[in-house]
């Protein structure tokens, strides 16, 4: 188990984990947990942020409208950080670390800073890559929250369930990401 997989093995196993998660717990999603993490930190400094409320569907309310939505669903997770969704995403770090410890071809020092395709186009500057990675992350999570899900929740889990919103999200993402990537990384070498 020290090699990358071919696409068929990879696709089979990736499909299986999405299926298995939906079967025994619920469909996989990631981007919500960025909100939960923010909420957990915020809750440390603001004692009024979350309150118990037996009337609410999830028994919690929040002064923040977003955390309060769907009957206090996010508020509940913020108040109880040891919950399924949050631990699931934290555990993904662990899975990645295990994979990399077992892997013989480690990620090179240079690749840990920026991918080759970036260097070929934008040069060696480390800060430039970090700034654009930050901006990229900002847009990705803002977009995902507006859309109500990300690649995992909308695209994979959504399309697996033949959900129209999943196809709609995928359409939006690729309609911009493909021409934009071609444009931004134009004249960069193929590999």
């Amino acid at each position: 188990m020290n090699k990358k997989w071919n696409w068929l093995t990879g696709g089979l196993l990736l499909g299986l984990i999405f299926l298995l998660a939906a079967w025994i717990v619920k469909p996989i999603g990631v981007s919500t947990q960025f909100v939960i993490l923010n909420g957990i930190v915020w809750n440390l400094f603001d004692a009024d942020l979350i309150e118990n409320d037996q009337e609410a569907k999830h028994k919690h309310t929040s002064t923040n409208v977003y955390l309060n939505k769907s009957g206090g669903k996010y508020a509940k997770s913020v108040e109880n950080p040891i919950n399924y969704g949050f631990l699931f995403v934290l555990s993904m770090f662990l899975g990645s670390i295990i994979s990399n410890v077992l892997l013989k071809n480690k990620v090179t020092k240079d690749e840990r800073i920026r991918p080759k395709v970036w260097t070929e186009k934008f040069g060696q500057s480390i800060s430039k890559r970090y700034i654009f990675a930050f901006i990229g992350g900002f847009l990705v999570l803002f977009g995902a929250r507006l859309a109500g899900g990300c690649t995992s929740g909308h695209m994979m889990s959504g399309m697996m369930q033949t959900s129209l919103s999943g196809y709609l999200f995928a359409l939006g993402v690729f309609a911009i990401a493909i021409p934009f990537a071609i444009l931004v990384f134009k004249n960069s070498q193929k590999k």
Binding site: F132, A133, I135, G136, G137, F138, L139, V140, L141, F142, G143, A144, L146, A147, C150, F169, G172, V173, F174, A175, I176, A177, I178, F180, A181, V184
Partner: peptide, 9 residues
């Protein structure tokens, strides 16, 4: 919006 950030990062 997601697509823009996805392509850059």
């Amino acid at each position: 919006i997601f697509g823009l950030g996805f392509a850059v990062s």
